[in-house]
Amino acid sequence: MTTLVLLRHGETLLTPGRRLSGSGGSNPGLSPAGRRQAQATADALAHRGDIEAVVTSPMRRCQETARPVAERLGLSVQLDEDLREADFGAWEGLTFAEVRDRYPDDLTAWLASPEAPPTGAGETMQQLTRRTAAVRDGLLTRYAGATVLLVSHVVPIRTLIRLALQAPPHTLFRMEVAPASLSTLTYDETGTATLQTLNDTHHLI
């Protein structure tokens, strides 16, 4: 079995307000609460003891989450550009309620089709799915039989889970992935995936 442990970055100042924070926005770092979450996660994963590599989105909030984990594990942090969050275009920094108020037709189209971009030439879910799947395939080849920690964002993590479950695109909006939560996928030698855990936040209590 190859195991991918999916860690969402800790909180930023935008997280409590549920504001869209993608790869086209301000690239915020962790808030004080987020830094505490990163340390608690590092403690939990050090206790787990089986992680052999740490791969992260290059965005600041993910690197700041990955760094204390890697330090506790004695591992280096590998950056992968394709683990970055979606580009939400003109929606960056807005809540869904604000997007619905300002761009109702574009939001409706985006929710209905993975081929529809956010307003302002943002990234489609189809484009994000393609790059996220490529990361997964590369890691399964490079780390066959190992356990790898991926530090990423809401949409890429939900996408990896959706693909593992062979679920339709709209299910992306039907799962919770909280800040600093852990989800776990295993893959057998044929590439068949099993979701072992989803949105585990027990280490943050």
Results as ranks from 00 to 15, higher is better:
Met1Trp: 14
Thr2Ala: 07
Thr2Phe: 12
Leu4Tyr: 04
Val5His: 14
Leu6Tyr: 10
Leu7Ala: 10
Thr12Met: 02
Leu13Trp: 07
Leu13Gly: 06
Leu14Asn: 11
Gly17Arg: 03
Gly17Gln: 11
Arg18Ser: 06
Arg19Asn: 02
Leu20Arg: 05
Ser23Leu: 01
Ser23Ala: 10
Gly25Thr: 01
Asn27Leu: 06
Gly29Glu: 04
Gly29Ala: 07
Gly29Gln: 06
Leu30Lys: 00
Leu30Arg: 00
Ser31Asn: 13
Ala42Lys: 04
Asp43Leu: 08
Ala44Phe: 03
His47Thr: 14
Asp50Tyr: 08
Asp50Pro: 06
Glu52Asn: 09
Ala53Ile: 10
Val54Asp: 05
Val54Cys: 11
Val55Trp: 02
Thr56Met: 06
Pro58Asp: 08
Gln63Gly: 13
Ala66Phe: 02
Arg67Ser: 14
Pro68Thr: 13
Ala70Ser: 14
Arg72Tyr: 06
Arg72Pro: 00
Arg72Thr: 04
Gly74Gln: 11
Leu75Arg: 07
Arg84Trp: 01
Glu85Ser: 01
Asp87Phe: 01
Phe88Met: 01
Phe88Leu: 02
Gly89Lys: 00
Ala90Tyr: 10
Glu92Ile: 01
Leu94Phe: 00
Ala97Tyr: 04
Asp101Val: 06
Asp105Tyr: 08
Leu107Gly: 05
Ala109Glu: 03
Leu111Met: 14
Ala112Ser: 13
Glu115Met: 07
Ala116Lys: 00
Ala116His: 06
Pro118Phe: 05
Gly120Tyr: 01
Ala121Cys: 12
Gly122Arg: 00
Gln126Pro: 12
Ala133Trp: 00
Ala134Ser: 09
Asp137Lys: 04
Gly138Glu: 11
Leu139His: 04
Leu140Asp: 08
Thr141Asp: 15
Arg142Gln: 13
Ala144Met: 05
Val148Trp: 00
Leu149Gly: 08
Leu150His: 09
Val154Leu: 15
Val154Phe: 14
Val154Lys: 11
Val155Cys: 14
Pro156Gly: 05
Ile157Gly: 01
Ile157His: 06
Thr159Trp: 03
Thr159His: 02
Ala164Asn: 09
Ala164Trp: 10
Ala164Arg: 06
Gln166Thr: 15
Gln166Pro: 04
Pro169Tyr: 00
His170Trp: 07
Thr171Phe: 11
Glu176Thr: 15
Glu176Ile: 15
Val177Asp: 11
Pro179Met: 10
Ser181Ile: 06
Ser181Asn: 01
Leu182Lys: 11
Thr184Cys: 08
Thr184Gly: 05
Tyr187Trp: 13
Asp188Val: 04
Glu189Tyr: 03
Gly191Pro: 03
Thr192Gly: 10
Ala193Ser: 10
Gln196Ala: 13
Gln196Gly: 15
Gln196Pro: 15
Asn199Lys: 11
Thr201Asn: 05
His202Gly: 15
His202Val: 15
His203Trp: 00
His203Thr: 07
Leu204Ala: 13
Ile205Thr: 14
